[in-house]
C-alpha cells in the first residue's frame, strides 16, 4: 500500500508541476525587460504598457467578450431546453437523433465544425441572402451551436440527479408545467446553469479555429490576433496578456471559493441544528 501511494503522490506532484510550470514561467517572463524569452533582462512592465496601446488587440478583445457573452447567454437558454427535453420528456419522436446532435459537438474536431458552418453560411447567403457577409453574427451562431452541447450535458446531468418527485409535488399542488419550471426547477438547478454559462463563455472566448472559418474581414477575435502574432514569433506582449487573464480567472476562482466555503459553513451549522432539534 505504502509504495503505491508513494507512486500516486509522485504522479500528482509531477502532474500539477506539468500543468502549472508553463503558466508560472509565462507570468515571470511577462515582466522581462528583454524581448528574448530565454534571456532575463531585468524587471519591466513595458509589455503591459505596450498591450494597453495595442489598438488591434484591444478591439479584438472587446469583440471577443461581446461574442462570448451573447453566445453564452443564447447557448444557456437553448442548452437548458435541450437538457430538459433529454432528462424529463422520456421517449419522444426523434430523441435518438436529438441526443446524437447534443453529444457529437462535444468531441467533434473544430476544423470540421468550422468548415461545415462556413459552407452553410455561404450556401444560405446564396439562397436567401442571409447572413449578409460574415462577422459577429455568424461567429455567435457558430459558438452557440458548439457550446450549447456542453450546457445541455451539464443541465441534463443535474436534472437526472434531481428527484423528479419534487416537480411532481409542485404539479400535484396545482402548478402548471411552465410555472413549475420557473418557480421550482430553475432555482434548484441554477448553479448548474451558471457553470454552464461560464463554460460556454470560456469556450467562446478561447475559440480560434471555428471563428477563423466563419469570421469576415472586419471581425477579428482575440484568439485570431494572438494566433497571428504568435506565428510571427514569440512576443512578450502575449505573456502580459496571459498574466492578465490568469489574474482575472484566479481572482474569480478565489472569490467563488470564499463564497462556497461560507455556504459550506452555514450548511454545517444547519445540519447541527437539524440533529439538535430532532424531536
Amino acid at each position: 500500500m505504502m509504495r503505491r501511494s508513494g507512486f500516486v503522490l509522485t504522479m500528482l506532484a509531477f502532474g500539477y508541476a506539468f500543468l502549472y510550470v508553463p503558466i508560472i514561467l509565462l507570468i515571470i517572463y511577462s515582466f522581462n525587460e528583454s524581448r528574448l524569452v530565454t534571456v532575463w533582462g531585468g524587471w519591466s512592465t513595458k509589455w503591459y504598457v505596450g498591450l494597453l496601446h495595442n489598438q488591434q488587440m484591444l478591439s479584438a478583445a472587446w469583440l471577443s467578450l461581446r461574442i462570448a457573452a451573447l453566445s453564452a447567454t443564447i447557448s444557456v437558454i437553448l442548452g437548458t431546453m435541450a437538457g430538459m427535453a433529454m432528462a424529463r420528456f422520456g421517449r419522444f419522436k426523434g430523441r435518438t437523433l436529438f441526443g446524437g446532435m447534443i453529444t457529437a459537438p462535444l468531441v467533434m474536431p473544430e476544423v470540421i465544425t468550422g468548415l461545415s458552418l462556413l459552407l452553410l453560411f455561404v450556401s444560405l447567403e446564396q439562397l436567401i441572402g442571409w447572413p449578409e457577409g460574415r462577422g459577429m453574427t455568424t461567429i455567435t451562431i457558430a459558438h452557440v451551436t458548439f457550446t450549447m452541447a456542453f450546457v445541455a450535458v451539464i443541465v441534463q446531468s443535474r436534472l437526472v440527479s434531481l428527484d423528479e418527485s419534487i416537480e411532481e409535488a409542485a404539479m400535484d399542488l396545482g402548478a402548471r408545467p411552465a410555472k413549475i419550471f420557473f418557480v421550482i426547477t430553475l432555482p434548484i438547478i441554477s448553479p448548474a446553469i451558471v457553470s454552464g454559462w461560464l463554460l460556454a463563455f470560456t469556450l467562446s472566448l478561447d475559440d480560434l479555429v471555428i471563428a477563423s472559418f466563419v469570421s469576415g474581414p472586419a471581425s477579428t477575435t482575440l484568439p485570431m490576433v494572438i494566433f497571428s502574432s504568435v506565428r510571427l514569433g514569440v512576443t512578450p506582449e502575449i505573456n502580459a496578456l496571459a498574466t492578465i487573464i490568469v489574474a482575472i480567472v484566479t481572482t474569480g476562482i478565489i472569490a467563488a471559493g470564499v463564497i462556497m466555503a461560507r455556504q459550506e459553513r452555514i450548511r454545517r451549522i444547519d445540519e447541527q441544528m437539524a440533529s439538535a432539534s430532532n424531536a
Binding site: 502549472y20 503558466i23 514561467l25 524569452v37 494572438i226 514569440v234 502575449i238 496571459a242 487573464i245 480567472v249
Partner: peptide, 24 residues
C-alpha cells in the same frame, strides 16, 4: 481544491498555454 487546480488552467486561454511551450 485539487480538482479546481485541474480545471483552472482550462479557464485561461488554450492558445496562450500552447504558446508557453514554445519558449520552454
Amino acid at each position: 481544491p485539487l480538482l479546481m487546480l485541474i480545471i483552472l488552467p482550462f479557464w485561461t486561454s488554450f492558445l496562450i498555454r500552447v504558446y508557453a511551450w514554445i519558449g520552454i
